[in-house]
Write a protein that binds this DNA or RNA. Sequence first.
DNA 1: GAGTGGTCTAGACCACACA
DNA 2: GTGTGGTCTAGACCACTCC
Lengths: 235, 235
Amino acid sequence: MAVFRYYQIVRKHILKRIESGELSPGSQLPSERTLCAELDLNRNTVRHALQLLQREGQIFRLERRGWYVSTRRLVYNPAKHVNFARLASSQGFEARWTTKDNGVIEVSPEMEDEAGFPSGTNVYEMENDFFLDNQKVAHVVSHLHAERLKDIVPKTVSRALTQVVQEEYGISLLQRRLLIRPVLLHKQVTDMLGLSLGAPGLYVRRVKTDERGAVLSVEQEYWRYDAIELRVDAE
Amino acid sequence: MAVFRYYQIVRKHILKRIESGELSPGSQLPSERTLCAELDLNRNTVRHALQLLQREGQIFRLERRGWYVSTRRLVYNPAKHVNFARLASSQGFEARWTTKDNGVIEVSPEMEDEAGFPSGTNVYEMENDFFLDNQKVAHVVSHLHAERLKDIVPKTVSRALTQVVQEEYGISLLQRRLLIRPVLLHKQVTDMLGLSLGAPGLYVRRVKTDERGAVLSVEQEYWRYDAIELRVDAE
DNA sequence: GAGTGGTCTAGACCACACA
DNA sequence: GTGTGGTCTAGACCACTCC
């Protein structure tokens, strides 16, 4: 038997309402104070339960807006090249994304580790936000080799990166050094995703090179914790 | 500038002591009440900061024992077959593990989804705990096809699974359906790892089949959140 | 037995969202 | 303006660890 804890009462109360369909995916939970009144418990206890449910991936919260029921996860294979929109729609999601072109920047020594480019390289910087069923679920920062992939940024709007590079630049991109790490999302990212500071997330870094191993692109993806599930189907 | 928050004072105070080496990896933090006194802050505030640091992967806690500084992460490629001990020692860790043989069980319909075996299959169940530098970092539950891999359990003690299956049974194992998900560790696992209930973790499931796609082994790994970093080096 | 972490209460104030 | 979530205080009791 589970030990008796008040926060487990809150947790199970909410889980039951999610399972029964009373709280549907994407809908907002009652306010914390309403839950306190319903269950006659202190707000600190209720918040403890809500944070547990968040870390379970059952609910998420938007900064100062409240708590929401998580939707199903996008199944995502980070080792394969993917076109985000096609992947999402093949799984029945309504997908869209925004693009922000930050122009050319020079890779600084401090960035080198994260970016994979030698410092001093000129790269295009591009930021994308991904939406699933109208919810922002990922923030992506991409760096692309500016000299080797001149004027590539506008070309990636409608086609996948690998495809553009192959067709327009005659270079075969290879996926290298894929890194996956659960993280606490930083302020810059939580702001972008509208989440509360300290929200859990998943960090995925994908480095692509040409056939000689020279780095041509680095994508850094920050996903809402409950929005994806990673699968790698080898062979 | 970062917004002024008391819990950020605590967080930075601890980070500074970690960076300065005053708190070394694996060592215990001062007690919560000591930190309160040092910083003249309330224990709730201090605990909020500690939980943030835990989710950052900087510290972890052992149930009712206290908070400890995280050690460096094992770099782990779940797509490749690995021998845990060899991998860990190649990265300079002192590695050991324990094995528990649970005998033969029959896969029930409820287990089917998780296990990958058709229900009704007889499988060996084996549990392993992995230690890095004398810290328990992972709990693994393995299921192995009992008829096709008869008496395999004792053979895996010193050799890697793939190798044993190839050499002793003449079967080439293929890695299939790798699943990675950050989770809240369940009571069964936190007890095994000595962590507090509600500790964050990483769940990795690896399914191996023969060349025809018949499932021969399913490994379910529960890792301490801050103990590993996943890398998949494609090609 | 002293001290620890785990849980829980009962408040408070602020900045922000929403209407 | 009302209500919300975000932050913070000042306690309390219990079960457990450690000495």
